Computed example of a mutant assay.
Amino acid sequence: MTSSHTQRRGLAAKSAARTTQNETLTAAGRAGFIARGVVYALIGALAIQIALGSGGESADRQGALAQVAAQPFGKVMLWAMVVGFGCMALWRASRAILDRGPQRKAASRVLDGGRAVFYASVCWATATYAAGGGQGSSGNSQSKDWTASVLELPYGQVLVGAGGCLLIGIGGVLAVRAAMRRFLKQLDTGSMSQRTKQVVTGLGVGGGVSRGVVFAAAGIFILVAAIRFDPDEAKGVDATLRSFTQTPMGPWLLVAVAIGLILFGVFSFASARWRRL
């Protein structure tokens, strides 16, 4: 066997391995978007029930998981979501570590790394919920406990305030990027019909803006907790959404935001289909 033949076989093997890796990571990313879509759609549905005065579960991730658990084969569905969030963490981590093309900026890799850590924590929390039957404190209690713990640290008030400002900034960026339709660059719009593209664009804009509003509102409450040195001012997703009913628009603002969160859930399903991974 000649040396050149051996080299060709080696290159072919590497190419096949790379293709398999890419296909695996692509499947992982799509599974992650589906899991994300389920959670956001359920949170939006729970928020609508709260606005209409018939809400029983918290309108946050824990409430969404409780809704899933109550369904037939709920445990199976919960573990499927664990796999989905784990896949999303894996995909984000691979983009942070492996994707080092000339167009990938260092800031983008850092953001993907942060998202990988976030989805890994969501995966762990979902697995804990699925294994333990859902016991644990609510998201609102956790937010207050975390805020109280940080406030006790040296410069804790500054740290909490910085965290609130960061969350407000993230919410603003999410809303602005959605309004500017920046997400379309990440989708394979060429394979969509014109009608499908219009629908997906509407889902992305409406859903992304609502998601950003929720992030920013939660950040405002954390900032207020820092200013007043009162951890009880911090709110989780559920309490943040409920606070919208206390505005002059009453429950209708919560309905509007909730519909937006449902739209973002559906947009996540569309991302699972058309996202360039």
Results as ranks from 00 to 15, higher is better:
Thr2Pro: 15
Thr2Glu: 14
Ser3Cys: 10
Ser3Gly: 12
Ser4Val: 13
Ser4Gln: 14
Gly10Thr: 05
Leu11Thr: 09
Ala13His: 09
Lys14Ile: 12
Ser15Glu: 15
Ala16Met: 06
Ala17Val: 05
Arg18Met: 13
Thr19Val: 14
Gln21Ala: 15
Leu25Val: 06
Thr26Glu: 12
Thr26Met: 11
Thr26Asp: 13
Thr26Trp: 08
Ala27Gly: 07
Ala28Phe: 10
Arg30Cys: 01
Ala31Arg: 15
Gly32Ile: 00
Phe33His: 09
Ile34Lys: 11
Arg36His: 12
Leu42Arg: 06
Gly44Gln: 01
Ala45Lys: 07
Ile48Arg: 02
Ile48Glu: 03
Leu52Met: 10
Ser58Ala: 13
Gln62Asp: 13
Leu65Met: 08
Val68Ser: 05
Val76Thr: 15
Leu78Gln: 03
Trp79Met: 10
Ala80Val: 08
Met81Phe: 02
Gly86Tyr: 00
Cys87Phe: 05
Cys87Leu: 04
Met88Ile: 05
Arg92Asn: 12
Arg92Lys: 11
Ile97Phe: 12
Leu98Phe: 12
Leu98Cys: 10
Asp99His: 13
Gln103Arg: 14
Lys105Asp: 09
Lys105Glu: 11
Lys105Gln: 13
Lys105Leu: 15
Val110Gln: 07
Asp112Ile: 03
Gly113His: 04
Gly113Asp: 04
Val117Tyr: 04
Phe118Arg: 10
Tyr119Thr: 03
Ala120Ile: 06
Val122Leu: 15
Ala125Lys: 07
Ala127Val: 06
Thr128Phe: 12
Ala130Arg: 01
Gln135Lys: 14
Ser141Leu: 13
Ser141Ala: 15
Gln142Trp: 09
Asp145Ile: 13
Trp146Ile: 15
Ala148Cys: 02
Leu151Lys: 02
Glu152Trp: 04
Leu153Arg: 14
Tyr155Leu: 14
Gln157Asp: 04
Val160Tyr: 00
Gly161Thr: 02
Gly161Ala: 03
Ala162Glu: 08
Ala162Tyr: 06
Ala162Gln: 10
Gly164Pro: 03
Ile170Asn: 12
Gly171Ala: 06
Gly172Phe: 10
Gly172Met: 09
Gly172Val: 07
Arg177Trp: 08
Ala178Tyr: 05
Ala178Ile: 01
Ala178Val: 01
Met180Lys: 14
Arg181Pro: 09
Arg182Phe: 12
Leu184Lys: 07
Lys185Arg: 15
Leu187Tyr: 01
Leu187Trp: 06
Asp188Cys: 07
Thr189Pro: 11
Thr189Asp: 11
Ser191Pro: 00
Thr196Leu: 12
Val199Ala: 04
Val199Lys: 04
Gly202Ser: 07
Leu203Gly: 00
Gly204Lys: 00
Val209Arg: 01
Val209Ile: 10
Val213Lys: 01
Val214Phe: 09
Phe215Leu: 08
Ala218Tyr: 05
Gly219Met: 00
Ala225Glu: 01
Ala226Lys: 03
Pro231Gln: 01
Pro231Glu: 00
Asp232Trp: 09
Ala234Trp: 03
Gly236Asp: 04
Gly236Tyr: 05
Ala239Arg: 07
Leu241Asn: 00
Leu241Gly: 00
Ser243Glu: 02
Phe244Tyr: 10
Met249Glu: 13
Trp252Val: 11
Leu253Ser: 08
Leu253Ala: 09
Val255Thr: 08
Ala256Asn: 02
Ile259Cys: 14
Gly260Met: 02
Ile262Leu: 03
Ile262Gly: 00
Leu263Asn: 03
Val266Ile: 15
Val266Ala: 07
Val266Glu: 04
Phe267Ser: 00
Ser268Pro: 04
Phe269Tyr: 08
Phe269Ile: 05
Ala272Thr: 07
Ala272Asn: 03
